[in-house]
Design a protein around this nucleic acid. Structure first.
Lengths: 159, 159
DNA sequence: TATTGTTATACTCTATAACTATA
DNA sequence: TATAGTTATAGAGTATAACAATA
């Protein structure tokens, strides 16, 4: 188990990632709503996802996803197809125009980011990607564990 | 220079950090405004900061910081002292009560995070912290470089 | 004239709760 | 009865612009 001091340091570094990602998104040549970018990227990676999966992935309420997807649909960037196995749910996927916009945006951000990391080796980049991937796994595993424990075990006393 | 493929992968991983940090913040035993947590943490690490520095650090407009600091001040968690070298600016620092709240919150999140990373070694945690620290440095260096270039060099043509 | 910070205002993003429809 | 998703509403969080005070 990692020491608490090390964890505190890592938490501080993770907190600094948020404004970095925010700045990257802000400077994107992208005309749509900022909150939609992440959804487009996720759909590009995963092919198609249900509303609920998108909500889970972005740690946001389903109602929020519902509105964002509706907006992206109006722009013609995503399409919703009914799930043949479950009449309640929908599959969301990129429409051709959304694919174009997403590819263009990713091409831009790739170039920008590569020039940002001009003194990094490919190995270092891969190392960081790998550790972040593992972090995500650990985080979700921990949440799944906590889900199955009695409420008091994860609640803080006092105040 | 890192390859664009590697950069795209890293960008995806960085994007996934945002919901993780968000979930951690959400589950905090903390009664104040969520947006204030980051400021308290930053002040704890840095001792004291000016309004503008807080804005820069969190990639947010000064006006936003102004309101958040005012709110934290009302709660008695931070205090603003005039900068003796510059009558326009203020130094913001943790008030005793804010120090208590922040320490308590950090103690909680440290415990939680250590148990999340129960199968990580200290070396791995330090490795990830180090790479994220370097990422932050590279990012700000790149922005500083871009600042001094003609506008067209960083703008995307077309659409 | 430029910079630091504040205030007013509007816009974006989000959560909560009540609802419909299907499982 | 539980789950997937929608809609209405209110509340955070944020940016923009106009402003005051100091450099």
């Amino acid at each position: 188990m990692a020491s608490e001091v090390g964890c505190e340091e890592l938490l501080a570094r993770l907190g600094e990632v948020v404004p970095i990602v925010k700045a990257i998104k802000r400077d994107l040549p992208f005309t749509g709503p900022r909150a939609g970018i992440g959804l487009l990227f996720a759909l590009r990676r995963c092919g198609q996802l249900r509303m609920g999966q998108l909500a889970e992935w972005s740690e946001v309420d389903q109602s929020v996803i519902s509105r964002h997807v509706a907006e992206l649909e109006e722009r013609g960037w995503v399409e919703r197809v009914p799930n043949p196995h479950d009449g309640r749910s929908w599959h969301v996927r990129l429409a051709p125009e959304g694919e174009r916009v997403t590819d263009e945006t990713i091409a831009y951000v790739r170039r920008m980011f590569a020039s940002t990391l001009d003194d990094w080796t490919d190995e270092e980049v891969a190392e960081l990607s790998g550790l972040l991937g593992r972090l995500r796994t650990s985080f979700h595993a921990h949440r799944a564990r906590a889900e199955h424990l009695p409420r008091t075990a994860q609640t803080v006393k006092g105040h």
